[in-house]
């Protein structure tokens, strides 16, 4: 079993300086290890910190304590201490993040948005666009939309563009924040299939799946995010 994520004793407390330094502990002493080929579904009551944990793994949130080691290009990188440049490299090559919401870039076509990660991997423009087209087709985005900027797309279409962008580069680790949240059954099935394929190529997946069917369909393991003891209660 090849370990790809090794997070130890994570803690995270939000301090709201605008509310007189109100401290909101969300994670306390959370440890999670994920191996290649696994899909871990994060569960727990709302506010338990599922999303916070996922964002901490991506170094989008800063943790207060603990370590997050990511297996990146043959060695371990601790995301809690890595320099921004290293984190950017880990994200580009190793660690993907798929959220529900597409951050629209003005004037960039759907095809180019999806192709961009492959360009960063060094693919030629032609090959990147070809693959991007295949991904969009698979996610049922009609070809007439490919050259349009997704700003005017429906929520579901934008979400699928975002999934394609997040998953197109075969990164070894994928973090998924409710990737199927507002999709219809047909598209949900496509995304489930894509996640399965990612596992089969040896990727480690960590996700939040509110929809129980999806969770059962893709998760190999459930990780119940423990509630942090209220420090300031």
């Amino acid at each position: 079993m090849k370990l790809l994520i090794d997070a130890q004793q994570l803690s995270k407390t939000f301090v709201l300086h605008q509310q007189d330094g109100l401290a909101l502990p969300v994670l306390a002493d959370v440890s999670l290890q994920v191996a290649a080929g696994e899909c871990v579904a994060l569960t727990g009551p709302s506010g338990a910190g599922k999303s916070t944990l996922l964002k901490a793994l991506y170094a989008n949130y800063l943790v207060g304590g603990g370590s997050i080691r990511i297996h990146h290009q043959g060695s371990w990188v601790d995301m809690t201490t890595a320099r921004p440049h290293e984190i950017a490299s880990v994200r580009r090559h190793t660690l993907g993040y798929v959220s529900q919401f597409l951050r629209v870039i003005p004037r960039v076509s759907a095809l180019d948005i999806v192709a961009e990660p492959l360009l960063e991997w060094g693919y030629s423009m032609q090959e990147a666009q070809q693959q991007a087209g295949a991904w969009l087709a698979r996610l049922n985005i009609g070809e007439r939309l490919w050259q349009l900027p997704p700003a005017t797309f429906s929520g579901g279409e934008q979400q699928r563009v975002n999934i394609a962008r997040g998953m197109i580069a075969p990164r070894p680790i994928l973090l998924l924040d409710e990737p199927t949240a507002s999709l219809d059954a047909a598209n949900r099935a496509v995304v489930v299939e894509l996640m399965r394929e990612a596992r089969q190529r040896g990727a480690a997946l960590v996700g939040i799946f509110h929809d129980e069917d999806t969770r059962t369909a893709v998760a190999s393991r459930i990780f119940d995010v423990p509630l942090a003891p209220a420090l300031c209660a």
Binding site: V15, A59, N60
Partner: peptide, 12 residues
């Protein structure tokens, strides 16, 4: 100082 998304999503 840090990654833009971290500073905008989790400012310290």
């Amino acid at each position: 100082a840090g990654l833009t998304d971290q500073i905008l999503d989790d400012p310290q």
